[in-house]
Each structure stands twice: as structure tokens, then as C-alpha cells.
Amino acid sequence: MAQTEIKVTKGAGKLQHIVTAGPHSLIADAPSAFGGDDAGFVPHDLLAAALGACTAVTLNMYAGRKELPLEKVDVSVIAAEQDGVYVFNRTLTYYGDLNAEQKESLNKIADKCPVHKALSGEIKIVTLSN
């Protein structure tokens, strides 16, 4: 996997930050109830979006390799805090002439997407500062 540097810099709002990855950018912010301007994604939503996008891409790649009749997959991720733990509830909706065995195979592959694996296992974060 190629490495991409993600840069986060202060934006125009009180808590707003601009997140860039190569030529792509988006805004991260906090809701107004927490002192932000609600001008962009909250960080937990970005994490949920990463899980949803990674799941969809992984499933489409797998279906293509296995020549499964998957026309598309919709991924819904609801993120919520429960008993002090952040929980991601993911729902997969498959479109295409798939049988039960093919859907079960896709469900297993969904858990193999890199973001799911990172969230399910131990993550090592190295902090460097200057």
C-alpha cells in the first residue's frame, strides 16, 4: 500500500481544520454545541466514513476478482458511544443476482477491509514532535 501523508491545518473557524491527502481536501470541525461552527465532519464521522468507504471498495474488488454478480453495495455506518466505548454499527445492502452463499462470502470479506482490521486490532501510533 502506498503511503499518503495526511495533513491537518487550522481552518477559518474556531475549531475548524482543513484535512488534505495529496490533492484532496475536506473540512473537520466540531458541532456548535462543543464550540465549533459545525462546518464539516467531526473526527468520529471521518473514522466511520473511512470504515464505510474501505468496506465498499474491498467488496467491489473481491466481487470483481471472483466474478460475482454484485452490481453495487451500499454501506451504512452508524457510530455511537455506548458505555464509554465507541461502537460502529455497519449495515451492508447488496444489489445484484447474489445467492445466500455469495452474500455470506461478501460478509466475511467485509471484515477483512484494512480499516476494519485496524479498528479491530491493536493500532500502533508513533507521535513525533519538534
Score class of each variant (00 low, 15 high):
Met1Cys: 01
Ala2Val: 05
Ala2Lys: 05
Gln3Ser: 06
Glu5His: 00
Lys7Trp: 01
Lys7Met: 01
Thr9Val: 14
Lys10Glu: 14
Lys10Gly: 05
Ala12Pro: 00
Leu15Asn: 10
Leu15Trp: 04
Leu15Thr: 08
Gln16Leu: 07
His17Ser: 14
His17Ile: 02
Ile18Gln: 13
Thr20Ser: 15
Pro23Leu: 09
Pro23Ala: 11
His24Arg: 07
Ser25Ile: 08
Leu26Val: 12
Ala28Pro: 13
Asp29Glu: 04
Pro31Val: 13
Ala33Ser: 15
Phe34Glu: 15
Phe34Thr: 12
Gly35Glu: 13
Asp37Leu: 01
Asp38Thr: 01
Asp38Lys: 04
Ala39Gly: 12
Phe41Ala: 04
Pro43Val: 08
Asp45Ile: 05
Leu46Glu: 13
Ala48Gln: 12
Ala50Gln: 07
Leu51Gln: 00
Cys54Gln: 00
Ala56Pro: 01
Thr58Cys: 03
Thr58Phe: 03
Leu59Ser: 03
Asn60Trp: 01
Asn60Ile: 05
Met61Phe: 08
Met61Thr: 05
Tyr62Ala: 15
Ala63Asn: 05
Gly64Asp: 11
Arg65Phe: 08
Arg65Glu: 15
Arg65Tyr: 10
Lys66Pro: 09
Leu70Ser: 07
Glu71Cys: 06
Val73Ser: 04
Asp74Ser: 10
Val75Tyr: 00
Val77Gly: 00
Ile78Tyr: 03
Glu81Tyr: 09
Glu81Asn: 10
Glu81Gln: 12
Gln82Trp: 04
Gly84Ala: 10
Gly84Leu: 10
Val85Met: 07
Val87His: 07
Arg90Trp: 00
Thr93Leu: 04
Tyr94His: 09
Ala100Glu: 15
Gln102Phe: 10
Glu104Asp: 14
Leu106Trp: 10
Leu106Cys: 11
Asn107Pro: 05
Ala110Glu: 02
Asp111His: 06
Lys112Trp: 15
Glu122Trp: 05
Thr127Gly: 09
Thr127Ser: 10
Leu128Met: 02
Asn130Trp: 04
